[in-house]
Amino acid sequence: MADPYTILGVSRTADQSAIKKAYRKLAKELHPDRNKDKPDAAARFAEVTQAYDLLSDAEQRARYDRGEIDEHGNPRAPYGFEDFQGHGPFSGGGPFRSAQDGATSFHFSGDSEELGDIFADLFGRGRGAGGREYRPRGSDVLYAVNVPFENIATAKPFAINLDGGEQLEVKIPPGTQSGDRLRVAGKGRPGPGGRGDAILELTVTLHPFFRQDGDDIRLDLPIRWDEAVLGAKVRVPTIDGPIMLTVPKGSTSGRVLRIKGKGMARRQGGRGNQLVRLMVDLPQNDKSLEAWAKEWREKNEYNPRSKLGV
């Protein structure tokens, strides 16, 4: 999260009245009940609420201004150390790290008495549209989630542990990328008008040998010199499991073979391709191969660089 003063658009010398006024304006613009068709508004609403939580507490604000705590309310550790305890002023005790799934959640105390008064003012002293009583939902919870590359590539669901221990199976829309956010209704904090939502901000983890190229997946495949010269059928990994691939006779390093339908899941349906680049891998200190190469060199004048004029 950025600097809370910047988030609320106030100066560092702003008094409580100015901070409260700035928050009221932003909360009215960004409240999820008024922006159901704008997923980013909920995350922004949670962000400004967290900023207001910190700056509206005189003690916490003073500690932040002195550099004793960060924008999440966590103690700033001495240089070279980090605090992993998640202590802070925001309802759930600051960031929560799940050791099982690597998800981080940020909680916002939007159901405090003071915030309730603000929402009553914003929405008609406790009355919503048509004179009905306004019952604010609980605040949303923002989770930072690491997603395996395989799940993104195949749009395969995966499970995370929410704050409180509940396990949630998350469906991955085809075409999802790092930085995308998914909304899960009713999995946020409770409130008089029902639970808020869980907002999942996704980061795709790197794969040890696959890499994404648009809708395609690229792979460098080592092959032996005899497989390159004579051709062969070899096992090649794909995101769905290994398959047999035909290496054409006379293949050279850098040649790219295409495997249809083994790439990334597409938003419009179907999948891209897997592009396999052949890399001839020679054994080290193979005396028989060295002897054969010397004999071959003496009998041949083939120059693969002649097309380059050298």
Rank of each mutant, 00 (worst) to 15 (best):
M1Q: 10
I7G: 00
G9K: 01
V10A: 04
I19V: 09
A22V: 01
A27F: 00
H31S: 01
N35D: 00
D37A: 05
P39T: 01
R44P: 02
F45N: 00
E47Y: 02
Q50A: 13
Y52W: 09
L54M: 11
D57G: 10
A58P: 10
Q60Y: 15
A62R: 15
H72W: 15
R76W: 04
A77V: 02
P78C: 07
Y79P: 04
Y79S: 12
D83M: 02
F84E: 07
F84M: 08
S105I: 08
S105L: 06
D111L: 03
D111K: 04
E114F: 12
D117I: 12
F119L: 11
D121I: 09
D121H: 10
D121F: 13
F123T: 03
F123A: 02
R125A: 08
G138T: 00
S139P: 09
A144R: 14
I152M: 05
A153W: 04
P157C: 08
F158H: 03
A159G: 09
N161C: 13
L162N: 04
D163I: 11
Q167W: 08
Q167D: 05
Q167I: 08
L168A: 10
K171P: 00
G179R: 13
R181T: 11
G186H: 15
K187L: 06
P192Q: 11
D197W: 05
A198M: 08
T205I: 05
H207M: 02
P208R: 10
Q212V: 09
G214T: 02
D215F: 05
L219K: 07
R224T: 15
R235P: 11
I239G: 08
D240V: 10
G241A: 04
L245P: 06
G250Q: 06
G254A: 04
K262E: 11
A265Y: 03
G270D: 07
G270Y: 07
G270A: 08
Q274F: 00
Q274D: 01
Q284Y: 13
S288D: 13
W292G: 04
A293R: 11
